[in-house]
């Protein structure tokens, strides 16, 4: 589904991705890990067609994604509908006057009828326990509420792939739990999940496969999440943890959740 082939990218001379090759199939749950500044957000932006490779190529469902391609409004709409992006900073992602409009923004751009949009938005508000926020302004929500709204905004377009940039950060433990369960549920229902995170405890729950970046903006490892977490040397090499890192009890911490919905 997603095919990244030897891609490099720089921001005005600042290297951010260096010869990256990744293949992701539909229905996978993939985590992107790496120290600060290693290029995780940049990769996710590339996957969402916000930036384009300096060298190498990126294909989505067999179709190469280039700046020219996305100039075509029909293609751009289709592409953005299939792949949803939850930004690292929810503040920049929320820009409408109230929560309802915010969630309805995507479907409106898709040209759905108001009644269809209303149904979608209300379903989502209920599903995400946001009923009470209908007419609240997104600016004045708490961090966790904003994150929920941001996810609802993306889900309202019913994308096939969901890309989340550090979604678990800044959430209280209860909301973290809720979000992780929610993501597991989405993946089970068939959505491809690509998540960047620093959270080593939750990463095995939201992914089966991990891609580890090093500080040189290249891929250090691409393997099963559980295996990666046990490979302390690798994590130290990526500068993700220091030598004091250890897993108390692998059996207990590294496990899959099995919730019934």
């Amino acid at each position: 589904m997603i095919e990244i082939n030897d891609v490099s990218y720089s921001y005005l001379g600042i290297r951010a991705l260096s010869h990256i090759s990744i293949k992701i199939e539909a229905g996978e749950a993939v985590a992107i890990m790496g120290p600060n500044g290693s290029g995780k957000s940049t990769l996710l932006k590339l996957i969402n067609g916000l930036i384009f490779p300096d060298t190498g190529c990126y294909r989505f469902q067999g179709q190469e994604i280039t700046e020219n391609q996305l100039q075509d409004p029909i293609f751009a709409k289709k592409f953005h509908q299939k792949i949803g992006f939850v930004f690292q900073n929810s503040d920049t992602q929320l820009f409408c006057a109230d929560v309802y409009d915010e969630i309805a923004f995507g479907p409106r751009q898709m040209g759905l009828s108001e009644s269809e949009i209303g149904k979608r938005v209300n379903d989502l508000l209920e599903l995400m326990q946001l009923d009470a926020f209908h007419h609240r302004s997104p600016y004045h929500l708490s961090g966790g509420e904003k994150r929920k709204v941001a996810i609802a905004c993306v889900l309202s377009m019913n994308p096939e792939v969901l890309v989340l940039d550090e979604p678990i950060n800044e959430l209280d433990p209860r909301t973290q739990r809720w979000l992780v369960d929610f993501l597991i549920r989405l993946n089970k229902s068939g959505k491809t999940l690509i998540t960047s995170t620093h959270n080593l405890e939750l990463v095995p729950e939201i992914s089966t496969r991990s891609i580890l970046f090093d500080e040189n903006h290249g891929i250090l490892a691409d393997m099963q999440t559980q295996k990666m977490l046990l490979n302390t040397d690798l994590l130290i090499k990526a500068n993700l943890v220091d030598e004091y890192y250890h897993i108390h009890d692998g059996e207990d911490h590294v496990h899959f959740h099995d919730h019934i919905f």
């Binding site: 916000l50 409004p73 709409k77 953005h80 930004f87 992602q93």
Partner: peptide, 18 residues
């Protein structure tokens, strides 16, 4: 910078400047 990111977010949700 923030507004540029906001514009990206709008694009991601299907907005094309119109």
């Amino acid at each position: 910078e923030m507004s540029k990111e906001m514009y990206s977010a709008m694009e991601c949700r299907g907005f094309n400047g119109k």
